[in-house]
Design a binder for these strands. Structure first.
Length: 478
RNA sequence: GGCCCCGUCGUCUAGUCUGGCCUAGGACACCAGGUUUUCAUCCUGGCAACAGGGGUUCAAAUCCCCUCGGGGUCACCA
Protein backbone atom coordinates (compact mmCIF):
# COMPACT_ATOMS: atom_id res chain seq x y z
CA UNK A 1 0.00 0.00 0.00
CA UNK A 2 2.97 2.25 0.09
CA UNK A 3 2.49 3.81 -3.28
CA UNK A 4 5.01 5.45 -5.43
CA UNK A 5 3.41 4.60 -8.74
CA UNK A 6 1.77 7.50 -10.50
CA UNK A 7 -1.90 7.70 -9.63
CA UNK A 8 -4.04 6.26 -12.38
CA UNK A 9 -7.65 5.45 -11.55
CA UNK A 10 -10.63 4.49 -13.60
CA UNK A 11 -14.37 4.50 -13.56
CA UNK A 12 -15.70 1.56 -15.51
CA UNK A 13 -19.43 1.60 -16.15
CA UNK A 14 -21.20 -0.90 -18.32
CA UNK A 15 -23.49 0.70 -20.87
CA UNK A 16 -26.58 -1.23 -19.89
CA UNK A 17 -28.58 1.60 -18.39
CA UNK A 18 -28.38 5.17 -17.18
CA UNK A 19 -25.72 6.33 -14.75
CA UNK A 20 -26.82 5.20 -11.31
CA UNK A 21 -26.45 7.44 -8.27
CA UNK A 22 -24.04 4.95 -6.74
CA UNK A 23 -22.00 4.81 -9.90
CA UNK A 24 -21.93 8.58 -10.03
CA UNK A 25 -20.50 8.73 -6.54
CA UNK A 26 -17.90 6.10 -7.36
CA UNK A 27 -16.94 8.16 -10.38
CA UNK A 28 -16.78 11.27 -8.21
CA UNK A 29 -14.45 9.61 -5.70
CA UNK A 30 -12.19 8.35 -8.46
CA UNK A 31 -12.15 11.74 -10.08
CA UNK A 32 -11.47 13.58 -6.84
CA UNK A 33 -8.68 11.16 -5.99
CA UNK A 34 -7.02 11.64 -9.37
CA UNK A 35 -7.34 15.41 -9.21
CA UNK A 36 -6.05 15.56 -5.66
CA UNK A 37 -2.90 13.70 -6.57
CA UNK A 38 -2.36 15.13 -10.00
CA UNK A 39 -3.12 11.71 -11.40
CA UNK A 40 -5.05 10.44 -14.37
CA UNK A 41 -8.77 9.71 -14.39
CA UNK A 42 -9.74 7.13 -16.98
CA UNK A 43 -13.16 6.23 -18.26
CA UNK A 44 -13.40 2.67 -19.49
CA UNK A 45 -16.47 1.12 -20.98
CA UNK A 46 -17.18 -2.41 -19.82
CA UNK A 47 -19.29 -3.66 -22.67
CA UNK A 48 -18.67 -7.38 -22.60
CA UNK A 49 -22.34 -8.15 -22.15
CA UNK A 50 -23.25 -7.94 -25.80
CA UNK A 51 -26.87 -8.75 -25.03
CA UNK A 52 -27.57 -5.73 -22.93
CA UNK A 53 -25.31 -2.99 -24.21
CA UNK A 54 -26.74 0.02 -25.93
CA UNK A 55 -25.38 3.16 -27.51
CA UNK A 56 -28.15 5.09 -25.84
CA UNK A 57 -26.96 4.01 -22.41
CA UNK A 58 -23.40 4.97 -23.22
CA UNK A 59 -24.45 8.41 -24.40
CA UNK A 60 -26.54 9.05 -21.33
CA UNK A 61 -23.72 7.97 -19.02
CA UNK A 62 -21.26 10.29 -20.68
CA UNK A 63 -23.65 13.20 -20.60
CA UNK A 64 -24.51 12.61 -16.95
CA UNK A 65 -20.82 12.66 -16.07
CA UNK A 66 -20.27 15.87 -17.94
CA UNK A 67 -23.23 17.40 -16.20
CA UNK A 68 -21.67 16.63 -12.83
CA UNK A 69 -18.40 18.09 -14.04
CA UNK A 70 -16.41 14.86 -13.96
CA UNK A 71 -14.02 15.17 -16.87
CA UNK A 72 -11.85 12.22 -17.84
CA UNK A 73 -8.29 12.32 -19.10
CA UNK A 74 -8.41 9.10 -21.08
CA UNK A 75 -11.40 7.35 -22.55
CA UNK A 76 -14.20 7.80 -25.06
CA UNK A 77 -13.90 11.00 -26.99
CA UNK A 78 -10.48 11.94 -25.65
CA UNK A 79 -8.35 8.90 -26.45
CA UNK A 80 -5.14 8.14 -24.56
CA UNK A 81 -2.09 5.90 -24.75
CA UNK A 82 -3.67 2.84 -23.16
CA UNK A 83 -6.69 2.34 -25.38
CA UNK A 84 -8.90 1.24 -26.79
CA UNK A 85 -11.18 2.19 -23.92
CA UNK A 86 -14.08 -0.10 -24.68
CA UNK A 87 -13.64 -3.72 -23.73
CA UNK A 88 -15.36 -4.92 -26.85
CA UNK A 89 -12.42 -3.53 -28.80
CA UNK A 90 -9.76 -5.13 -26.68
CA UNK A 91 -10.11 -8.77 -27.71
CA UNK A 92 -6.48 -9.14 -28.89
CA UNK A 93 -5.29 -8.29 -25.41
CA UNK A 94 -7.63 -10.82 -23.84
CA UNK A 95 -6.79 -13.50 -26.38
CA UNK A 96 -3.11 -13.29 -25.59
CA UNK A 97 -3.78 -13.77 -21.89
CA UNK A 98 -6.17 -16.61 -22.57
CA UNK A 99 -3.59 -18.43 -24.65
CA UNK A 100 -1.04 -17.95 -21.91
CA UNK A 101 -3.42 -19.35 -19.32
CA UNK A 102 -4.33 -22.34 -21.44
CA UNK A 103 -0.69 -23.10 -22.10
CA UNK A 104 0.36 -22.67 -18.53
CA UNK A 105 -2.58 -24.62 -17.25
CA UNK A 106 -4.33 -22.11 -15.03
CA UNK A 107 -7.15 -21.92 -17.53
CA UNK A 108 -8.98 -24.95 -18.88
CA UNK A 109 -11.75 -25.68 -21.31
CA UNK A 110 -15.02 -26.90 -19.87
CA UNK A 111 -17.56 -28.66 -22.05
CA UNK A 112 -20.20 -29.08 -19.41
CA UNK A 113 -23.55 -27.78 -20.55
CA UNK A 114 -25.23 -24.99 -18.61
CA UNK A 115 -27.96 -27.51 -17.86
CA UNK A 116 -25.54 -29.88 -16.22
CA UNK A 117 -23.95 -27.14 -14.15
CA UNK A 118 -27.29 -25.76 -13.09
CA UNK A 119 -28.57 -29.17 -12.10
CA UNK A 120 -25.38 -29.80 -10.18
CA UNK A 121 -25.69 -26.60 -8.23
CA UNK A 122 -29.34 -27.18 -7.58
CA UNK A 123 -28.53 -30.57 -6.15
CA UNK A 124 -25.79 -29.11 -3.99
CA UNK A 125 -28.18 -26.52 -2.67
CA UNK A 126 -30.68 -29.21 -1.77
CA UNK A 127 -27.98 -30.93 0.19
CA UNK A 128 -27.25 -27.61 1.88
CA UNK A 129 -23.84 -27.48 0.34
CA UNK A 130 -22.41 -24.44 -1.30
CA UNK A 131 -23.14 -24.49 -5.00
CA UNK A 132 -19.89 -24.86 -6.87
CA UNK A 133 -18.71 -26.25 -10.18
CA UNK A 134 -17.30 -29.73 -9.63
CA UNK A 135 -14.30 -29.37 -11.95
CA UNK A 136 -15.44 -32.29 -14.08
CA UNK A 137 -13.48 -30.94 -17.03
CA UNK A 138 -10.36 -29.98 -15.13
CA UNK A 139 -8.33 -33.08 -15.91
CA UNK A 140 -9.64 -33.66 -19.43
CA UNK A 141 -6.97 -35.41 -21.55
CA UNK A 142 -5.56 -33.19 -24.27
CA UNK A 143 -6.58 -35.61 -26.97
CA UNK A 144 -10.21 -35.67 -25.91
CA UNK A 145 -10.24 -31.92 -25.53
CA UNK A 146 -8.84 -31.44 -29.02
CA UNK A 147 -11.37 -33.85 -30.46
CA UNK A 148 -14.37 -32.14 -28.92
CA UNK A 149 -12.96 -28.82 -29.94
CA UNK A 150 -12.65 -30.02 -33.49
CA UNK A 151 -16.28 -31.05 -33.77
CA UNK A 152 -17.19 -27.61 -32.52
CA UNK A 153 -18.67 -28.66 -29.20
CA UNK A 154 -19.68 -25.53 -27.28
CA UNK A 155 -17.57 -24.82 -24.24
CA UNK A 156 -16.42 -22.17 -21.83
CA UNK A 157 -13.01 -21.55 -20.35
CA UNK A 158 -12.63 -21.66 -16.60
CA UNK A 159 -10.02 -20.50 -14.16
CA UNK A 160 -8.36 -23.34 -12.25
CA UNK A 161 -8.46 -21.90 -8.77
CA UNK A 162 -5.44 -23.04 -6.74
CA UNK A 163 -6.28 -25.29 -3.80
CA UNK A 164 -4.96 -23.75 -0.69
CA UNK A 165 -3.87 -20.24 -1.26
CA UNK A 166 -4.86 -17.06 0.43
CA UNK A 167 -6.08 -14.05 -1.47
CA UNK A 168 -5.09 -10.87 0.30
CA UNK A 169 -6.77 -7.65 -0.66
CA UNK A 170 -5.06 -4.44 0.40
CA UNK A 171 -7.92 -2.05 0.88
CA UNK A 172 -7.45 1.58 1.84
CA UNK A 173 -10.84 1.73 3.45
CA UNK A 174 -11.08 -1.67 5.13
CA UNK A 175 -7.51 -2.64 5.74
CA UNK A 176 -6.45 -6.10 4.64
CA UNK A 177 -9.22 -8.47 3.66
CA UNK A 178 -8.31 -12.13 3.44
CA UNK A 179 -10.17 -14.91 1.66
CA UNK A 180 -9.12 -18.55 1.30
CA UNK A 181 -8.97 -19.78 -2.27
CA UNK A 182 -11.13 -22.81 -1.42
CA UNK A 183 -13.99 -20.34 -1.12
CA UNK A 184 -13.63 -19.44 -4.78
CA UNK A 185 -15.04 -21.67 -7.48
CA UNK A 186 -13.59 -22.30 -10.90
CA UNK A 187 -15.37 -19.36 -12.45
CA UNK A 188 -16.04 -18.83 -16.12
CA UNK A 189 -13.43 -16.68 -17.77
CA UNK A 190 -14.62 -17.00 -21.37
CA UNK A 191 -18.23 -17.48 -22.32
CA UNK A 192 -19.30 -20.02 -24.89
CA UNK A 193 -19.71 -17.17 -27.34
CA UNK A 194 -16.01 -16.38 -27.01
CA UNK A 195 -16.42 -13.18 -25.04
CA UNK A 196 -14.44 -13.05 -21.79
CA UNK A 197 -16.27 -12.09 -18.62
CA UNK A 198 -15.96 -9.08 -16.33
CA UNK A 199 -13.58 -10.47 -13.73
CA UNK A 200 -11.12 -11.40 -16.43
CA UNK A 201 -11.27 -8.30 -18.62
CA UNK A 202 -11.14 -6.11 -15.60
CA UNK A 203 -7.83 -7.54 -14.49
CA UNK A 204 -6.26 -7.53 -17.94
CA UNK A 205 -7.35 -3.95 -18.48
CA UNK A 206 -6.40 -2.61 -15.08
CA UNK A 207 -2.98 -4.13 -15.50
CA UNK A 208 -2.46 -2.91 -19.05
CA UNK A 209 -3.79 0.54 -18.23
CA UNK A 210 -1.47 0.64 -15.24
CA UNK A 211 -4.25 1.38 -12.82
CA UNK A 212 -2.74 2.16 -9.42
CA UNK A 213 -5.89 2.21 -7.32
CA UNK A 214 -9.15 0.42 -7.95
CA UNK A 215 -11.85 2.52 -6.30
CA UNK A 216 -15.23 0.87 -6.70
CA UNK A 217 -18.41 -0.12 -4.89
CA UNK A 218 -18.39 -2.59 -2.04
CA UNK A 219 -20.51 -5.03 -4.00
CA UNK A 220 -17.30 -5.83 -5.88
CA UNK A 221 -15.44 -6.85 -2.74
CA UNK A 222 -16.83 -10.38 -2.92
CA UNK A 223 -15.28 -11.15 -6.26
CA UNK A 224 -12.03 -9.35 -5.73
CA UNK A 225 -10.40 -12.62 -4.59
CA UNK A 226 -10.98 -13.98 -8.10
CA UNK A 227 -9.14 -11.01 -9.50
CA UNK A 228 -6.34 -11.21 -6.98
CA UNK A 229 -5.77 -14.88 -7.81
CA UNK A 230 -5.74 -14.00 -11.47
CA UNK A 231 -3.10 -11.31 -11.01
CA UNK A 232 -1.02 -13.92 -9.27
CA UNK A 233 -1.44 -16.47 -12.07
CA UNK A 234 -0.53 -13.80 -14.57
CA UNK A 235 2.51 -12.80 -12.57
CA UNK A 236 1.30 -9.23 -12.40
CA UNK A 237 1.33 -6.87 -9.40
CA UNK A 238 -2.12 -6.15 -8.00
CA UNK A 239 -3.38 -2.62 -7.58
CA UNK A 240 -4.39 -1.07 -4.29
CA UNK A 241 -8.10 -1.24 -3.63
CA UNK A 242 -10.66 1.00 -2.04
CA UNK A 243 -14.11 -0.53 -1.78
CA UNK A 244 -16.50 2.27 -1.01
CA UNK A 245 -19.61 1.59 1.05
CA UNK A 246 -22.96 1.22 -0.64
CA UNK A 247 -25.58 3.91 -0.99
CA UNK A 248 -28.72 2.61 0.64
CA UNK A 249 -32.39 3.30 0.03
CA UNK A 250 -34.81 4.23 2.83
CA UNK A 251 -35.19 0.50 3.45
CA UNK A 252 -31.53 0.15 4.33
CA UNK A 253 -30.81 -1.99 1.31
CA UNK A 254 -28.77 -1.21 -1.76
CA UNK A 255 -30.38 1.74 -3.49
CA UNK A 256 -32.68 0.53 -6.20
CA UNK A 257 -35.43 1.84 -8.37
CA UNK A 258 -38.02 0.90 -5.78
CA UNK A 259 -36.97 3.70 -3.48
CA UNK A 260 -37.02 6.56 -5.96
CA UNK A 261 -34.98 8.01 -8.75
CA UNK A 262 -31.71 6.18 -9.07
CA UNK A 263 -30.49 7.68 -12.32
CA UNK A 264 -28.46 10.84 -12.03
CA UNK A 265 -30.15 12.09 -15.14
CA UNK A 266 -33.54 12.10 -13.48
CA UNK A 267 -32.24 14.65 -11.02
CA UNK A 268 -30.83 16.82 -13.75
CA UNK A 269 -34.14 16.62 -15.57
CA UNK A 270 -36.03 17.81 -12.54
CA UNK A 271 -33.85 20.85 -12.15
CA UNK A 272 -31.49 19.84 -9.35
CA UNK A 273 -28.38 22.03 -9.36
CA UNK A 274 -25.41 19.90 -10.41
CA UNK A 275 -23.15 21.45 -7.78
CA UNK A 276 -25.62 20.52 -5.03
CA UNK A 277 -25.81 17.00 -6.36
CA UNK A 278 -22.03 16.72 -6.32
CA UNK A 279 -21.87 18.16 -2.83
CA UNK A 280 -24.48 15.72 -1.62
CA UNK A 281 -22.84 12.70 -3.24
CA UNK A 282 -19.57 13.81 -1.69
CA UNK A 283 -21.23 13.82 1.71
CA UNK A 284 -22.34 10.21 1.38
CA UNK A 285 -19.52 8.21 2.88
CA UNK A 286 -17.02 11.01 2.86
CA UNK A 287 -16.45 14.11 4.95
CA UNK A 288 -13.97 16.95 4.81
CA UNK A 289 -13.86 17.50 8.55
CA UNK A 290 -16.09 17.68 11.61
CA UNK A 291 -18.18 20.62 10.48
CA UNK A 292 -18.06 21.30 6.76
CA UNK A 293 -21.21 20.25 5.00
CA UNK A 294 -21.30 22.69 2.12
CA UNK A 295 -18.41 22.49 -0.31
CA UNK A 296 -17.53 22.89 -3.96
CA UNK A 297 -15.88 20.35 -6.22
CA UNK A 298 -12.57 22.17 -5.81
CA UNK A 299 -12.83 22.13 -2.05
CA UNK A 300 -13.61 18.45 -2.12
CA UNK A 301 -10.61 17.77 -4.31
CA UNK A 302 -8.35 19.76 -2.02
CA UNK A 303 -9.43 17.69 0.97
CA UNK A 304 -9.89 14.32 -0.67
CA UNK A 305 -8.32 11.36 1.01
CA UNK A 306 -9.27 7.69 0.76
CA UNK A 307 -8.74 7.45 4.49
CA UNK A 308 -11.66 9.79 5.03
CA UNK A 309 -14.11 7.43 3.38
CA UNK A 310 -16.42 5.54 5.77
CA UNK A 311 -16.80 1.85 6.02
CA UNK A 312 -20.54 1.70 6.47
CA UNK A 313 -23.37 2.26 4.02
CA UNK A 314 -25.20 5.55 3.79
CA UNK A 315 -28.90 6.09 3.29
CA UNK A 316 -29.82 8.43 0.47
CA UNK A 317 -31.51 11.21 2.44
CA UNK A 318 -33.53 13.41 0.13
CA UNK A 319 -34.31 15.94 2.87
CA UNK A 320 -30.70 16.88 3.12
CA UNK A 321 -30.29 16.86 -0.64
CA UNK A 322 -33.17 19.29 -0.98
CA UNK A 323 -31.77 21.58 1.66
CA UNK A 324 -28.44 21.56 -0.15
CA UNK A 325 -30.19 22.42 -3.41
CA UNK A 326 -32.01 25.37 -1.85
CA UNK A 327 -28.85 26.53 -0.17
CA UNK A 328 -26.95 26.38 -3.45
CA UNK A 329 -29.60 28.47 -5.14
CA UNK A 330 -29.76 30.99 -2.32
CA UNK A 331 -26.05 31.64 -2.57
CA UNK A 332 -26.15 32.42 -6.29
CA UNK A 333 -26.06 35.90 -7.75
CA UNK A 334 -29.15 37.14 -9.57
CA UNK A 335 -27.38 36.92 -12.89
CA UNK A 336 -26.15 33.37 -12.41
CA UNK A 337 -29.46 32.23 -11.09
CA UNK A 338 -31.32 33.71 -14.02
CA UNK A 339 -29.12 31.84 -16.47
CA UNK A 340 -29.74 28.56 -14.69
CA UNK A 341 -33.45 29.27 -14.48
CA UNK A 342 -33.91 30.12 -18.15
CA UNK A 343 -34.55 26.57 -19.39
CA UNK A 344 -37.37 26.29 -16.89
CA UNK A 345 -39.12 29.54 -17.57
CA UNK A 346 -42.25 29.94 -19.57
CA UNK A 347 -41.55 30.82 -23.17
CA UNK A 348 -43.35 34.11 -22.57
CA UNK A 349 -40.14 35.42 -21.01
CA UNK A 350 -38.99 36.20 -24.53
CA UNK A 351 -40.95 39.40 -24.33
CA UNK A 352 -39.39 40.45 -21.07
CA UNK A 353 -36.39 42.68 -20.64
CA UNK A 354 -33.31 41.85 -18.63
CA UNK A 355 -34.25 43.92 -15.61
CA UNK A 356 -37.60 42.22 -15.34
CA UNK A 357 -36.00 38.78 -15.52
CA UNK A 358 -33.40 39.64 -12.93
CA UNK A 359 -36.09 40.79 -10.56
CA UNK A 360 -37.95 37.56 -11.12
CA UNK A 361 -34.86 35.53 -10.29
CA UNK A 362 -34.16 37.67 -7.24
CA UNK A 363 -37.59 37.45 -5.71
CA UNK A 364 -38.01 33.71 -6.19
CA UNK A 365 -34.52 32.76 -5.15
CA UNK A 366 -35.10 32.06 -1.49
CA UNK A 367 -38.28 30.19 -2.28
CA UNK A 368 -36.76 27.70 -4.70
CA UNK A 369 -35.48 24.25 -3.90
CA UNK A 370 -34.88 23.20 -7.48
CA UNK A 371 -34.41 25.26 -10.61
CA UNK A 372 -37.37 23.34 -11.97
CA UNK A 373 -39.64 24.74 -9.26
CA UNK A 374 -39.62 28.16 -10.84
CA UNK A 375 -41.82 26.92 -13.60
CA UNK A 376 -44.84 26.30 -11.44
CA UNK A 377 -44.08 29.05 -8.95
CA UNK A 378 -44.01 31.76 -11.52
CA UNK A 379 -46.79 30.40 -13.72
CA UNK A 380 -49.26 33.03 -12.51
CA UNK A 381 -47.05 35.75 -13.95
CA UNK A 382 -47.56 34.44 -17.43
CA UNK A 383 -51.17 33.41 -17.63
CA UNK A 384 -54.12 35.46 -18.75
CA UNK A 385 -56.18 35.09 -15.64
CA UNK A 386 -55.41 33.61 -12.27
CA UNK A 387 -56.96 30.42 -11.01
CA UNK A 388 -57.11 30.85 -7.24
CA UNK A 389 -56.18 27.78 -5.26
CA UNK A 390 -58.35 26.60 -2.40
CA UNK A 391 -56.96 28.90 0.25
CA UNK A 392 -56.87 31.90 -2.04
CA UNK A 393 -60.46 31.28 -3.10
CA UNK A 394 -61.49 31.25 0.53
CA UNK A 395 -59.69 34.51 1.17
CA UNK A 396 -61.41 36.06 -1.81
CA UNK A 397 -64.86 35.04 -0.68
CA UNK A 398 -64.62 36.64 2.74
CA UNK A 399 -66.96 39.49 3.67
CA UNK A 400 -66.03 42.87 2.37
CA UNK A 401 -63.32 41.64 0.08
CA UNK A 402 -64.91 43.05 -3.04
CA UNK A 403 -64.86 46.54 -1.55
CA UNK A 404 -61.32 46.12 -0.39
CA UNK A 405 -60.11 45.03 -3.79
CA UNK A 406 -61.79 47.77 -5.70
CA UNK A 407 -60.61 50.26 -3.09
CA UNK A 408 -57.01 49.15 -3.51
CA UNK A 409 -57.43 49.10 -7.27
CA UNK A 410 -58.60 52.69 -7.23
CA UNK A 411 -55.81 53.63 -4.91
CA UNK A 412 -53.21 52.11 -7.22
CA UNK A 413 -54.83 53.50 -10.32
CA UNK A 414 -54.08 56.91 -8.97
CA UNK A 415 -50.40 56.24 -8.59
CA UNK A 416 -48.20 57.98 -11.14
CA UNK A 417 -45.11 55.82 -11.33
CA UNK A 418 -45.02 52.02 -11.46
CA UNK A 419 -44.25 50.02 -9.48
CA UNK A 420 -45.77 52.19 -6.78
CA UNK A 421 -43.06 53.46 -4.47
CA UNK A 422 -43.80 52.79 -0.82
CA UNK A 423 -46.50 50.33 -1.70
CA UNK A 424 -46.65 48.92 1.79
CA UNK A 425 -46.99 52.34 3.40
CA UNK A 426 -49.68 53.17 0.92
CA UNK A 427 -51.73 50.12 1.78
CA UNK A 428 -51.13 50.63 5.45
CA UNK A 429 -52.51 54.11 5.24
CA UNK A 430 -55.49 53.01 3.24
CA UNK A 431 -56.21 50.19 5.67
CA UNK A 432 -56.08 52.55 8.62
CA UNK A 433 -58.46 54.94 6.88
CA UNK A 434 -60.94 52.14 6.44
CA UNK A 435 -60.35 50.75 9.89
CA UNK A 436 -58.97 47.47 8.63
CA UNK A 437 -55.90 45.49 9.70
CA UNK A 438 -53.11 45.43 7.15
CA UNK A 439 -53.44 41.69 6.89
CA UNK A 440 -57.11 41.97 6.02
CA UNK A 441 -56.10 43.95 2.98
CA UNK A 442 -52.89 42.26 1.92
CA UNK A 443 -54.30 38.76 1.97
CA UNK A 444 -57.09 39.23 -0.56
CA UNK A 445 -54.91 41.47 -2.69
CA UNK A 446 -52.31 38.73 -2.88
CA UNK A 447 -54.97 36.14 -3.62
CA UNK A 448 -56.36 38.25 -6.45
CA UNK A 449 -52.94 39.00 -7.87
CA UNK A 450 -51.30 35.60 -7.67
CA UNK A 451 -54.02 33.06 -6.98
CA UNK A 452 -52.27 31.86 -3.87
CA UNK A 453 -51.46 33.02 -0.37
CA UNK A 454 -47.71 32.72 -0.62
CA UNK A 455 -44.97 34.13 -2.76
CA UNK A 456 -42.70 37.12 -3.20
CA UNK A 457 -43.44 40.47 -1.61
CA UNK A 458 -46.40 42.15 -3.17
CA UNK A 459 -44.32 45.12 -4.21
CA UNK A 460 -42.32 42.75 -6.42
CA UNK A 461 -45.43 41.08 -7.72
CA UNK A 462 -46.87 44.42 -8.72
CA UNK A 463 -43.68 45.29 -10.52
CA UNK A 464 -43.51 42.01 -12.37
CA UNK A 465 -47.17 42.06 -13.32
CA UNK A 466 -47.21 45.66 -14.49
CA UNK A 467 -49.87 48.26 -13.83
CA UNK A 468 -52.52 47.19 -16.29
CA UNK A 469 -52.41 43.55 -15.39
CA UNK A 470 -52.34 44.24 -11.66
CA UNK A 471 -55.37 46.50 -11.80
CA UNK A 472 -57.23 44.10 -14.06
CA UNK A 473 -56.67 41.24 -11.66
CA UNK A 474 -57.82 43.26 -8.68
CA UNK A 475 -60.99 44.33 -10.47
CA UNK A 476 -61.67 40.96 -11.96
CA UNK A 477 -61.28 38.88 -8.83
CA UNK A 478 -64.36 39.90 -6.95
C1' G B 1 -27.02 -21.19 4.51
C1' G B 2 -21.33 -20.41 3.18
C1' C B 3 -17.94 -16.49 2.63
C1' C B 4 -16.97 -11.30 3.22
C1' C B 5 -18.02 -6.33 5.06
C1' C B 6 -20.25 -3.13 8.56
C1' G B 7 -22.61 -1.27 13.50
C1' U B 8 -21.95 6.86 17.06
C1' C B 9 -28.48 11.20 17.44
C1' G B 10 -34.49 9.51 12.99
C1' U B 11 -30.72 10.69 8.70
C1' C B 12 -25.55 12.29 6.83
C1' U B 13 -21.39 12.45 9.81
C1' A B 14 -16.73 14.18 13.46
C1' G B 15 -14.18 11.51 17.04
C1' U B 16 -11.70 5.13 16.45
C1' C B 17 -5.62 3.80 13.41
C1' U B 18 -2.03 7.18 17.34
C1' G B 19 -7.11 5.30 24.67
C1' G B 20 -7.48 10.71 28.51
C1' C B 21 -8.86 17.57 25.55
C1' C B 22 -15.93 13.58 24.62
C1' U B 23 -20.26 16.25 30.31
C1' A B 24 -19.65 12.74 22.42
C1' G B 25 -19.12 18.09 18.13
C1' G B 26 -21.52 19.71 13.37
C1' A B 27 -25.41 19.39 9.55
C1' C B 28 -30.46 17.83 7.77
C1' A B 29 -35.18 16.69 9.72
C1' C B 30 -38.33 17.69 13.84
C1' C B 31 -40.24 20.89 18.05
C1' A B 32 -40.49 25.86 20.53
C1' G B 33 -39.61 31.04 20.24
C1' G B 34 -38.07 35.65 17.40
C1' U B 35 -37.72 38.86 12.76
C1' U B 36 -41.40 39.54 8.66
C1' U B 37 -47.50 42.47 4.77
C1' U B 38 -48.04 36.26 3.01
C1' C B 39 -44.88 32.19 1.84
C1' A B 40 -39.97 31.50 2.14
C1' U B 41 -35.39 33.09 4.05
C1' C B 42 -32.86 34.41 8.44
C1' C B 43 -31.73 34.28 13.98
C1' U B 44 -32.12 31.86 18.95
C1' G B 45 -33.13 27.64 21.82
C1' G B 46 -34.59 22.44 22.38
C1' C B 47 -35.07 17.10 21.47
C1' A B 48 -31.80 13.20 20.21
C1' A B 49 -26.60 8.45 19.66
C1' C B 50 -21.40 5.40 21.24
C1' A B 51 -26.10 -2.18 19.46
C1' G B 52 -25.42 -5.61 24.00
C1' G B 53 -22.14 -8.31 27.23
C1' G B 54 -17.45 -9.50 28.92
C1' G B 55 -12.35 -8.29 29.36
C1' U B 56 -7.38 -5.10 29.18
C1' U B 57 -6.23 -0.27 31.60
C1' C B 58 -5.46 4.61 36.56
C1' A B 59 -8.67 5.78 32.16
C1' A B 60 -12.38 2.80 26.47
C1' A B 61 -16.90 5.50 21.60
C1' U B 62 -11.66 4.44 20.83
C1' C B 63 -7.78 -1.91 22.09
C1' C B 64 -9.27 -7.58 22.53
C1' C B 65 -13.17 -11.49 22.68
C1' C B 66 -18.20 -13.12 22.34
C1' U B 67 -23.31 -12.21 21.19
C1' C B 68 -26.90 -9.70 18.53
C1' G B 69 -28.26 -6.76 14.40
C1' G B 70 -27.74 -4.95 9.31
C1' G B 71 -25.72 -5.34 4.45
C1' G B 72 -23.09 -7.45 0.20
C1' U B 73 -22.14 -11.71 -2.60
C1' C B 74 -22.56 -16.63 -4.08
C1' A B 75 -24.24 -15.95 -13.05
C1' C B 76 -21.65 -17.88 -19.53
C1' C B 77 -24.29 -9.35 -15.25
C1' A B 78 -21.02 -5.83 -14.20
Amino acid sequence: MTENRPVRVRFAPSPTGKLHIGGARTALFNWAFARRHGGVFILRIEDTDTERNSQESLDSILSAMRWLGLDWDEGPGVGGDFGPYAQSERMPLYDAAIQKGLTEGWLYRCFCTPERVNALKEEQRNRKENPRYDRACLGLPDAECAKRLEVGEPHVIRFAVPDSETAEIQDHIRGQVTVQSVEVEDWVVVRSNGMPTYNFCCVIDDAQMQISHVVRGEEHLANTPKQVLLYRALGLPQPDYAHVPLILGQDGKKLSKRTGDTALQDYRDKGYPAEAMLNFLGLLGFSIDDETTVFSADEMVAAFDLKRINKSGAIFDTDKLHWLCGDTIRRMTDTDLLERLRPWLNTAVCDKDGGWLLQLAACFRERLTLFGDVSEMSAHLFCECVEPDEKAAKALSADGVADTLSGVADLLAGVESWPPPEFFALVKGWAAEHELGVGKVMKPVRAALTGSLGGPELGDVLALLGKDCSLARLRQAR
